[in-house]
Design a protein around this nucleic acid. Structure first.
Lengths: 150, 150
DNA sequence: CACGCATTGTTACAGTATAACATAACACAA
DNA sequence: TTGTGTTATGTTATACTGTAACAATGCGTG
């Protein structure tokens, strides 16, 4: 397994240990699949990959539970634009960081993850205040066409 | 029927006529349901409302087709955050306008529609350029908690 | 060990969306 | 007006996405 993946997993483990979260084997296996994948995966794609890698059938419920935990722990993001899940790719994914922003290619599904620009964040907060709304914003999704698909 | 709804429908009709789009009866009925609704609706909620209003069973496929047309025509937006559809609420919805932005309450589902702030838009475009991405961005969805749910 | 709580297993089902092919309505030219 | 191609709708079946409900197991702590 790639060294970089190992590091991500190890830091994820540390983060959970430090926060009283239990990164169990199942959850780690699901996270691992997402980290190794080069693109976002649907829950059922994860299911299939899991079955292939571990030679063991796994039920959707189990996948969704692991995903729920990982999203909660901010180790995985759910992309609503295409109902797929992506491992947090940023080097410091396991420390606190700003909100995530995704450039999602509507043709090939490729995704670039960045931080939400502070200027953007401030504007959003201000707009929300006009409606007395409190921003929760797990992340921002922006549809685009990537360089390879243009 | 509310005068304001009538106006929205009429302008929608005009816009389509002017652009060679056919706002057929089915499509107009679906649009009407969305405009009358005070909150976003799922495709199957539309289906049920349609059945009730017109005393006629309607198949999901038909709803989805109408929605596809209406979204394409920018008369309706699909909120990916909760898989619901909302009629474009802005007074000038039938003229060209900027990109839409939605403040979606994650508790009650209530939605406020505004324009994407030009400053935000510029920042997004610039960020995208760093990845040589071309922004398509039908709209921006921001999760929040509305004033009533705080 | 016993207790309480979090995790996982299992079954069933609800909700969301599209493929594929048939038929009908419409626009427009011959 | 009649033919012709195109767009819209009807119909059936099915794929994909996600959750409810309850049982069993594992884990930490007094």
């Amino acid at each position: 397994m790639d060294q970089r993946f190992q590091n991500l997993l190890a830091t994820a483990q540390d983060k959970c240990d430090g926060n009283g979260l239990r990164l169990t084997q199942k959850r780690k296996q699901v996270l691992n699949i997402l980290i190794e994948a080069s693109s976002p995966l649907s829950a059922y794609e994860i299911k299939d990959l899991y079955a292939k890698q571990h030679n063991e059938n796994i039920k959707p419920m189990t996948i969704y539970r692991a995903l729920e935990f990982l999203v909660e722990a901010n180790l995985v993001h759910k992309l609503n634009l295409n109902n797929k899940y992506i491992g947090c790719a940023r080097a410091k994914c396991c420390e606190h960081h700003g909100y995530s922003q995704f450039l999602i290619c509507v043709r090939c599904g490729n995704v670039e993850e960045t931080n939400v620009d502070p200027v953007i964040y401030e504007h959003l907060v201000q707009q929300a205040q006009a409606y007395q709304c409190e921003i929760v914003m797990p992340h921002l999704e922006v549809a685009c066409i990537c360089v390879r698909c243009k």
